[in-house]
């Protein structure tokens, strides 16, 4: 990660907020910290589970020097606000799991969110869906994997049923977080998220995830994608006739997007 970017954000946050870089993308860099931006210590948590392990994620969109300063400010504000708003809205949807939004500074391109997940045992890395599936490669069809993938599909179904789309649904953007002993999938990174009633956007979401599963877990992908779609369909099936119809439309488009994708790759 560029030292310049780290210096920028360190100066902004001051030495009171120590940060650890964890990821760098094209658009944003991500850090963790154990300092809450505003809550007094001991506010919510009782003294004994006020662990020093409580972590927060800071997602920072740095200045882009190649953009005109006023355009840069406007774009940063627009994207930071967009991601915050969608996260805040999604948090209110019953049953949907997304990290909690804690703070937003649109003037400096900064979002604070709840940290989710943990390090998997045996150096399998961070508990996103991709690493979790790798961890189970020796017993790929175990019950835990099946349950988890159905839940992943269920989360995506809830998202789409409520007319939101993720925009970058990869296996790294599904984080598994332990809630009393079992894994619950949470969708993260709504930087490309949007509200959408279009079947096209939903079909593309499903296609992107399917491709991600095929490319990293190819031997087991058929079953995995079947389980994901089982969870996805269950949301729509619970919504009666209207749900059934909407699902049919999405699945039809999903199939079309898949064919388009194949054609494109054939043409090279």
């Amino acid at each position: 990660m560029s030292q310049e970017v780290i210096d920028q954000i360190a100066a902004y946050l001051t030495s009171n907020i120590p940060i650890v870089p964890i990821s760098q993308g094209a658009e944003a860099v991500v850090f963790t910290t154990n300092v809450h931006p505003y809550e007094p210590i001991n506010a919510k948590t009782s003294p004994n589970d006020q662990s020093t392990k409580t972590k927060y994620v800071i997602k920072y969109r740095p200045h882009k020097k190649y953009r005109h300063p006023s355009i840069d400010r406007a774009l940063t504000k627009h994207r930071t606000l967009g991601e915050s708003k969608i996260l805040a809205k999604l948090s209110q949807l019953p049953g949907l799991h997304v990290p909690k939004l804690i703070a937003t500074d649109v003037y400096n391109g900064c979002i604070w969110i709840e940290f989710l997940g943990e390090d998997l045992p045996d150096s399998f890395g961070f508990s996103n869906l991709k690493n979790y599936l790798w961890m189970h490669a020796s017993d790929p069809y175990c019950d835990d994997v099946k349950k988890t993938l159905i839940k992943v599909g269920h989360q995506i179904g809830l998202l789409h049923w409520n007319d939101y789309c993720h925009g970058d649904l990869t296996t790294s953007n599904v984080v598994l977080h332990q809630d009393n002993g079992h894994w619950e999938p949470y969708l993260i990174d709504f930087g490309l998220g949007s509200t959408s009633t279009l079947v096209e956007d939903k079909g593309v979401d499903l296609y992107v995830l399917e491709r991600a599963i095929i490319s990293t877990h190819s031997r087991f992908a058929a079953k995995y994608n079947e389980w994901i779609m089982q969870g996805f369909r269950s949301v729509y099936e619970d919504e009666g006739k209207k749900g059934q119809q909407k699902m049919k439309d999405i699945l039809k488009r999903f199939e079309e997007v898949r064919l388009r994708g194949r054609k494109r790759s054939m043409l090279g």
């Binding site: 506010a43 703070a103 003037y107 400096n108």
Partner: peptide, 20 residues
């Protein structure tokens, strides 16, 4: 309803005053 709610507003107020 909570200190979180209260101090979230304080944070926002200082943020607006500092950067806007």
């Amino acid at each position: 309803g909570s200190l979180e709610q209260l101090f979230c507003a304080v944070y926002k107020a200082i943020l607006e005053s500092t950067y806007n």
